[in-house]
Write a protein that binds this DNA or RNA. Structure first.
Lengths: 206, 206
DNA sequence: TTAAAAATCACCCAATTCAGGGAGAAAAAA
DNA sequence: TTTTTTCTCCCTGAATTGGGTGATTTTTAA
């Protein structure tokens, strides 16, 4: 079997080094390069195509989700594994929806990392047990559970929409939006909109 | 000269590995261990005291700022270097106020990392040029400049205070708070409180 | 299939915020 | 010292939010 060529996109030098070292002596896997921005990643892909890209979600400028989509559209043979921190599980779904084949937390160990790479290189999906569990039940369990609708409303509130605008965007009545809003305040234990926004951004539960 | 013993606290295995490797062949520096939580860090310190701790600000449970304070109070001989991502500059000040001797971004390279460790181990302070610049001028310069008072008001708004509460806390009139609030909306180009909070958190300009 | 949860909408009322204006005193910069 | 900026305060009125209560329908889970 051929060697799996792995490329890393992460804006943290230390993380790149960490991964590179973890993969160093792994049979069947070669490290073929790294980039710290979406631009340099795309530039690299013009010269060489890896089998798997380990891609951080938080990149300066273009975020990982858009980059993932872009890469998958242009180079369907390149598989992407999302990388992120524990408290950003919210983005996992979006990453998967945009063509990622797997998702790893940055605290993953060597076995999990190599296992994920090998599996994804074969065209399969990989999901760490931790992530899979949370994806199933939708949240970090410590955080109050928000319903689908409540999340949508919250998202629009955070974007600065008034109840009126939210109602129009979601095709529901203003009073309904108001009810969701009140439930959000209770569930997130917020005193007002400001606190609501701060809490939801802090916890990244969008 | 003695070897500088370095300990790492970070909840991301990959970061720990990355740092460990960067320090591996560095003369004068030895890696003496790592922890992924505040608890296990404190437990380690009972058995052995490093010279320098590289400490991530984002830890599960107890955050790095509190841990830093705790460590410095109990073990004044141990110096702490804060670690974080670029978009969390807001916490740098707090970290330094709580006894950290330096601050590094996670995308720091080998030279910067070792330089910081050596300098801090001697009892000096270290600040990467990037961080120092931004600390000086308080913001990322792209952002509209807020006055001292406006920042105070904004901070309280983000914490969920009403104008009334803010007025009492700052010993000024409600109308004054209101004026500041309006100016904040204009300066940050926000439509309402929600947008104001999101923008200020996004840009970390507290 | 039945029970529980979520989504929908309505009403009232108080509190707060938003938008517009003006205006004087204090502090900082020129 | 003069000018500019910041900080202070007030007014009016519209819009939005916050708190409480209650009810119907739809969806989901047991």
């Amino acid at each position: 079997m051929n060697m799996v060529k792995v490329f890393i996109v992460d804006d943290h030098y230390m993380v790149i080094e960490g991964i590179r070292v973890l993969l160093q002596h792994e049979p069947g896997i070669t490290f073929c390069g790294a980039a710290s921005s979406a631009e340099s990643c795309m530039a690299f892909l013009l010269t060489e195509l890896p089998d798997v890209i380990l891609m951080d979600i938080n990149l300066p400028g273009v975020n990982g989700i858009e980059l993932c989509q872009l890469v998958r559209l242009k180079y369907p043979s390149v598989f992407v594994i999302g990388l992120s921190t524990f408290n950003q599980l919210s983005y996992i779904r979006k990453m998967m929806e945009n063509g990622a084949s797997g998702y790893l937390l940055k605290n993953a160990g060597r076995e999990e990392l190599t296992g994920a790479i090998i599996k994804v290189a074969r065209g399969q999906e990989f999901m760490s047990s931790e992530v899979a569990l949370i994806l199933k039940h939708g949240n970090t369990s410590l955080l109050p559970l928000l319903t689908r609708r409540e999340k949508e409303v919250l998202e629009l509130i955070v974007e600065g929409c008034t109840n009126n605008e939210i109602a129009r965007k979601l095709f529901i009545g203003i009073s309904t939006v108001d009810t969701h809003r009140k439930n959000l305040l209770v569930k997130l234990n917020a005193r007002n909109t400001a606190a609501l926004v701060r809490i939801s951004l802090d916890q990244k539960l969008l």
